[in-house]
Design a protein around this nucleic acid. Structure first.
Lengths: 155, 155
DNA sequence: TTCCTTAATGTTAACAATTCTCATTATCAT
DNA sequence: ATGATAATGAGAATTGTTAACATTAAGGAA
């Protein structure tokens, strides 16, 4: 009855105490790691249903939320009314990128042209903030907003 | 009949050609400048209705969108399923801040502890990006995600 | 001022994304 | 294998946001 709380028994870091490693959960994660960035819940649902015909949409939502709070994935808001998800990439690691979003049409560009000093600055900020506010900082997002060349023409 | 397109005649920069300066529009903007940051459309609606009982919720949404694409305000996604709005503060200017968001409970902290090199780096990135992608960059957002001390306890 | 064009409004219905309910199934420590 | 319970699938219900439409009003022209 006491059933102590253990972690990581099944090899997946980030699943909390009592959380189970299920097939839909893995399939959803794989769908995200397969495609590159910015899938909506609906798109993930469709992809996963390809290999797992019986899966329900609610399960997708439930697991995205779980993966998100667990730090495996993060959501991006492109302003089109639906949340989009992508794998969480460690700062400085491969795949790490930031966003450039058009305020008018919502187009999202991933960019990876980092300045060499960028990582150092981010690290410094993290340390500072985590000290001041007692947050455990896991990731960051740098996004620039503006007008894309297409929308600029229409002005 | 030709009615030429003029701008700024009523003193409000950022309203496009043909856009009118109406009472609800001003009230909504004032509601945002009155309270400090992160109001949802619903909250803005309630506040404005205090002074302007007949206003409709759709009007709030319409004007928030107008103010947003016009560059007066911007929306922040705290992950709680509703868009939140705040006045757009020019980078480096007073009131400019970044965000620290708890992935679990969605708490949003504004921070203004900038490093002196931060502004310089952002400017450099802006120039670089706007050259490469032909974007007119108007603003940026730097957000750190993590776990707040409260939610860390519950783990 | 008064007129006229048309942007903006308020109401309501419609919509689409997300969450909830609940009976059933499946994970996994024992 | 067994039992406690986390997770699932189906669908209904809820919620934030947008569209439709008839009405009002901003503001340039006369």
């Amino acid at each position: 009855m006491p059933r102590r709380c253990w972690r990581g028994g099944h090899g997946w870091r980030g699943l909390g105490c009592g959380q189970r490693l299920t097939a839909p959960r893995q399939a959803i994660y794989q769908a995200l790691s397969g495609a590159q960035g910015h899938l909506s819940a609906d798109e993930i649902f469709l992809r996963v249903r390809g290999r797992m015909p019986g899966i329900g949409l609610a399960t997708v939502y439930r697991n995205l939320e779980l993966l998100r709070t667990g730090g495996h994935i993060r959501s991006v808001d492109a302003g089109d009314g639906k949340a989009r998800y992508e794998l969480h990439q460690a700062a400085g690691g491969p795949g790490h990128h930031h966003h450039l979003i058009c305020r008018q049409c919502g187009q999202v560009i991933d960019y990876m042209d980092f300045e060499k000093d960028e990582l150092a600055l981010v690290k410094k900020l993290e340390t500072q903030l985590s000290g001041k506010y007692k947050y455990q900082i896991a990731e960051h997002d740098i996004t620039f907003y503006g007008t894309c060349p297409n929308c600029a023409k229409r002005d």
